[in-house]
Simulated scan of single mutants.
Amino acid sequence: MFRAVIVFIFICASQSAFAQFLFGPSERPTLAACMAIPENKVWIQTVTRQLRERAPKLNLGRGTVTIKFHVDFRGRVTRASLSNYDNNARALVAAGMITSLKLTPPPDDMDTDCRDFEQTFNFH
């Protein structure tokens, strides 16, 4: 019985190690890893430039809005979610800026996790 338990533990442990060997680590890539490929870097810089250009210019009072969003393989913003806001008007303005982004499709070999963004808009 003891040998069966030991064999079972080795089989379970080896499967996860083998899966990690085949598919790589299960951690999300960092921004540095995403920008290591020149095509990815150019595309990410395009996204951040458009976000800066769309910075809110309305006087809606002081506050911040943080939005997390994903860009699909066609360059469309999907899965946008507000994570930090204290005023619905500011949240609607920020969400409108994010959803109106006109992005080119990301590079074909770009990792899905590299297309996740988080943007904080500061209102003055």
Rank of each mutant, 00 (worst) to 15 (best):
residue 18 F to C: 12
residue 101 L to K: 10
residue 97 M to L: 14
residue 18 F to E: 12
residue 112 T to N: 09
residue 59 N to S: 06
residue 109 D to V: 03
residue 111 D to K: 10
residue 34 C to H: 05
residue 6 I to V: 14
residue 42 V to W: 02
residue 60 L to S: 07
residue 85 Y to K: 09
residue 40 N to Q: 09
residue 71 V to Q: 05
residue 23 F to K: 03
residue 23 F to Q: 04
residue 4 A to D: 11
residue 52 R to T: 15
residue 41 K to A: 05
residue 47 V to L: 01
residue 62 R to K: 11
residue 80 A to N: 06
residue 87 N to C: 03
residue 35 M to Y: 04
residue 30 T to L: 06
residue 56 P to V: 02
residue 30 T to S: 12
residue 36 A to I: 14
residue 81 S to T: 09
residue 34 C to S: 13
residue 21 F to V: 03
residue 28 R to G: 03
residue 46 T to Q: 12
residue 19 A to W: 13
residue 77 V to C: 09
residue 22 L to R: 05
residue 101 L to M: 02
residue 40 N to D: 05
residue 57 K to G: 08
residue 23 F to T: 08
residue 107 P to W: 09
residue 122 N to W: 09
residue 67 I to N: 06
residue 1 M to Y: 00
residue 23 F to D: 08
residue 51 L to P: 08
residue 2 F to I: 05
residue 80 A to I: 05
residue 50 Q to K: 12
residue 69 F to V: 14
residue 70 H to Y: 13
residue 103 L to S: 06
residue 25 P to F: 10
residue 55 A to Y: 04
residue 37 I to H: 13
residue 47 V to P: 02
residue 84 N to M: 13
residue 103 L to K: 02
residue 9 I to R: 02
residue 120 T to I: 12
residue 120 T to K: 14
residue 28 R to I: 01
residue 82 L to I: 01
residue 86 D to A: 12
residue 32 A to T: 15
residue 60 L to H: 10
residue 118 E to V: 08
residue 53 E to N: 15
residue 70 H to L: 10
residue 50 Q to C: 08
residue 17 A to S: 02
residue 94 A to Q: 08
residue 38 P to W: 09
residue 72 D to C: 11
residue 97 M to A: 14
residue 46 T to F: 00
residue 105 P to S: 14
residue 19 A to G: 08
residue 106 P to L: 12
residue 78 T to P: 06
residue 99 T to R: 12
residue 77 V to Q: 07
residue 14 S to R: 04
residue 29 P to G: 08
residue 96 G to M: 07
residue 78 T to Q: 10
residue 36 A to H: 15
residue 109 D to Y: 07
residue 102 K to L: 15
residue 118 E to W: 00
residue 121 F to V: 14
residue 92 L to E: 11
residue 62 R to W: 02
residue 2 F to H: 04
residue 1 M to E: 00
residue 97 M to R: 15
residue 80 A to V: 11
residue 36 A to G: 15
residue 106 P to I: 03
